[in-house]
């Protein structure tokens, strides 16, 4: 029994290590060229700086939208809603988490992109469209983890605040949120990791221009989108550069996870 369980553990950790090893080994020769600011496979240029900016812009945009909404949702579920209402809202949130990303992308492409183009100008394919789609996608993650953090607080905190005559808003702002800070930060970092790794939905709405965006209405290409789009026929150095992009992405996601473990403690 113990042996079988050990085998399971070894298998899953070996999978991670092997993937990381493979990606780094395949991409190694292209690593020096990765720092350049132009990505133009036809000219032999494989700099991913613009994509790093693209990924960061879209991810941060998503967090700006999803963190207040997600934490607000968690506060609503724990502090405001009656158990019956919370029981109704929670499954809806879970459903949101289960929608496949290509569906988000398709809705974004058919609704958001034309709306942004008509309402705000530009081509519509933009950082903003990507951030909106991603924000909705990571909202359930952030809300669920933040809700757990708030629920884990001892009732004495709320009772003590009430006994001191604090208003509900004062209780939330001065007592509950500071006390649940660790759990909420974990929620944010998990959302961040998910946003950075998401591919399909972002690819469909950001326009994939390999240049650093200078406004939310500019198109942008993410690291994930870069791989997904060009892997089909990439050979030689181009293929190595895509693996190197993957290695960079892996390193970023690992850094985010390490951060999540540290702040979660």
């Amino acid at each position: 029994m113990q042996g079988a369980l050990l085998a399971c553990a070894v298998l899953s950790s070996a999978a991670v290590l092997l993937i990381a090893l493979f990606v780094v080994a395949e991409g190694w020769p292209a690593v020096p060229g990765l720092l350049g600011d132009r990505w133009s496979p036809e000219d032999g240029l494989f700099g991913v700086r613009a994509m790093v900016w693209g990924s960061l812009a879209v991810t941060l945009g998503a967090l700006v939208l999803a963190v207040p909404a997600g934490v607000g949702m968690a506060l609503f579920l724990t502090e405001v809603a009656s158990p019956a209402l919370a029981g109704l809202a929670r499954p809806l949130l879970q459903t949101l988490a289960g929608v496949p990303s290509v569906v988000y992308g398709f809705v974004g492409l058919s609704v958001l992109v034309p709306a942004i183009r008509r309402g705000l100008g530009g081509p519509g394919f933009s950082v903003l469209a990507g951030a909106l789609v991603l924000g909705v996608m990571i909202l359930p993650t952030i809300a669920a983890v933040a809700e757990d953090a708030l629920r884990a607080l001892p009732p004495a905190y709320r009772e003590g605040a009430a006994a001191l005559g604090a208003t509900p808003w004062q209780t939330v702002r001065r007592v509950l949120l500071p006390a649940a800070r660790g759990g909420i930060t974990t929620a944010v970092v998990l959302g961040l990791g998910r946003a950075m790794g998401e591919t399909m939905a972002v690819l469909m709405v950001t326009g994939n221009v390999a240049m650093a965006p200078t406004s939310p209405l500019d198109p942008a290409r993410t690291l994930t989108g870069n791989i997904a789009m060009e892997m089909g026929y990439a050979v030689g150095r181009h293929r190595e550069a895509l693996f190197a992009t993957g290695a960079l992405l892996l390193a970023l996601v690992m850094a985010v996870n390490a951060l999540a473990r540290r702040v979660g403690r």
Partner: peptide, 8 residues
């Protein structure tokens, strides 16, 4: 142009 929107 590198400014062109890219669709796959």
């Amino acid at each position: 142009s590198p400014h062109a929107i890219i669709q796959s």
